[in-house]
Structures are given as structure tokens and as C-alpha cells.
Simulated assay, not measured.
Amino acid sequence: MRCFRSCHAVVSLLLAIPAHAQNQQQMPRDYRGVETIVPGIFVTPVPNAPFTATIEILSHENLPDGTVNTRTTTAHIARASSGRIYNERRQLVPTSFKGEPQLLSAHIYDPSSRLNIFYNPFQHIARESIYTGPPAPPPNTTPARTPVNNPYFKQEDIGTQPLDGLTLTGIRKTHIIPAAMSTTGKDVAIVDEYWYSPELSIYMIIKHNDPRTGEQLVAVGNVERHEPAASIFVIPANYKIVDENPPEIDSSPQPAEPMPVQK
């Protein structure tokens, strides 16, 4: 992917995500370090913008002995014309790894029915629940609001760039850690970049750089703007479905500690 290679040459990596502009007022905090679990990208459940794509994640983690732990992974995402979304998380593996990394979890959400499904490939269990509202972006997948009138925080527009026929708009967020608090004896600048696609309503690239802990990059590539196969949104046949919705409230006696109803 052109953008992924250029980002890699400039900064080793961060995690991306995507989210919808309507969620800006309730964003999680900015990413603060290289994590073992990288959430990836949040696919917003908006209609009339179908696509499939892959997510490339590259992680350079600075270790206490001065070496760098470099890992990567590839995951798949999709969205139907109805707004139904599919997202997955896969294991971070060494760069020498061949093949597709192990699937760790998958998420399906249908905005028309509000049915939310997380399935676990290790236990072969799919957990279903009905959301009262749209799903929230996982932490570190969308930019937080920059504090106002705080000299240690800065946000700036960084223009546009092309990717897979789309035009992305970028922002850069810089958080200065004063020398007295940085554990390095000097000021440290934590820099996060977010590149958003208005056409797809997702963040296509997110880069993170903290000189103390490392760098990460999450980038969306191989975008195909067509209706995904219906099978993508189907729970595998050998999975046990667990209904995690609370019991409906009525006048009949209720158990003291209601358990999830299993299908």
C-alpha cells in the first residue's frame, strides 16, 4: 500500500482507528504508549457507503534493555450498504511471520436491529446483545479533544493526502511532557496524527510516536468500494450463541441473580 510504505519510512507506527465526526464530543483520551493490544480501526455503522479493506498495523516498542520489539499484523474490515459493520482483531506477530495472523476476536453490528455481536474463536462463542445506541469507538481509535488554553497541548491541521482514490484530511496533536515529569530529564513531545476519510466516515491512518515507549502505525489499505459478501456478517456455524440481553422487566417474580439466556 503506497501510503503505508511512506508512513513507515517517516514514522514506524501508531494505531488507527476511525470514527465518526458526530462522536467528537465524547472521544476517549489520546493514546499514551505502545500497547500489547492494539484496537485497530473503528468502522462507523453509516449507510450507503459499502466497502471492504484490510488494516496493516506496525508496532515498534522500545524495551528497557535498549532494543526494539517490532511486530506487525493484518486484519479485515467491511461495511454493507445498510450500515452493518464487520471488524476483527488479530495477533501481533514478528515481521518474519508468514501467513495470516491468528484471529483473536471479531465484531458485527447491525444498526437497523441494533444487534451487537462479539465472537471468540478460541471458545467458539458468539455473544449477542441489543444496543440502545450506536457502538462507541474503542479507546485509542479516535482523537480526543485538545484541552483549551493549555500550553502543553497543541492541535494543527496538516492538510490532505490521497489514498486508494480517497482524499484524507489530517490533524496532528502534540502533547508536551515537561522535563520534570518525563523521566528523561528533558521535555518529551508525544505526537499523534489522524487521517480521516469523509467519504468512508472512518480514520484511515493513525500514527503515534512517544520517544520513551515507541511508535505505532495503523493504516487501512486495499479498499474496495463494493457490497461485501453477505457471509462476512454471518456467525460461523460451529459457534454457540449466548444471549447477553438483560431479562425484560415485567410484573412476574424475577430471580435474584438473573443469568444470561443461552440459545
Rank of each mutant, 00 (worst) to 15 (best):
E100C: 01
I125P: 01
G133Y: 08
I77D: 05
E199R: 12
I55G: 02
A230I: 07
N149L: 10
A144K: 01
F97T: 09
S231D: 14
L14K: 11
A49Q: 15
M204H: 00
N149S: 10
L115E: 13
S113N: 00
L15T: 14
A78E: 12
S197R: 05
K173W: 05
S6W: 11
F51N: 05
L63H: 06
H107F: 14
I85E: 03
A126Y: 08
R2V: 06
E244G: 00
V191N: 01
P147M: 11
P228Y: 08
L163N: 13
Y131K: 12
V234F: 01
V148P: 01
A16Y: 00
I41H: 11
P121C: 08
L104M: 12
E100Q: 09
T36V: 05
Q262R: 14
P18T: 11
L200Y: 03
F4E: 13
N140K: 03
L13C: 11
I55H: 06
I206Q: 15
D110W: 10
K173N: 07
D250H: 03
Y31M: 09
P260F: 01
A219W: 06
V242M: 08
T146Q: 05
Q216T: 09
P18I: 06
I41R: 10
A106V: 08
Y196K: 08
P198L: 02
P246Y: 00
P147T: 03
L217I: 12
H124P: 01
D187W: 03
A219S: 15
S6C: 09
G83F: 00
D192H: 07
P139I: 09
N120C: 07
V191M: 04
A126K: 09
R90T: 03
Q216E: 12
M181T: 02
F122Y: 12
R32H: 14
R29F: 07
I158E: 04
F51R: 06
Q155Y: 00
P147S: 12
L200C: 04
M204P: 00
P134V: 07
S251D: 14
A256G: 04
T44S: 15
P253E: 11
P47F: 10
T174G: 01
G165M: 14
Y109P: 03
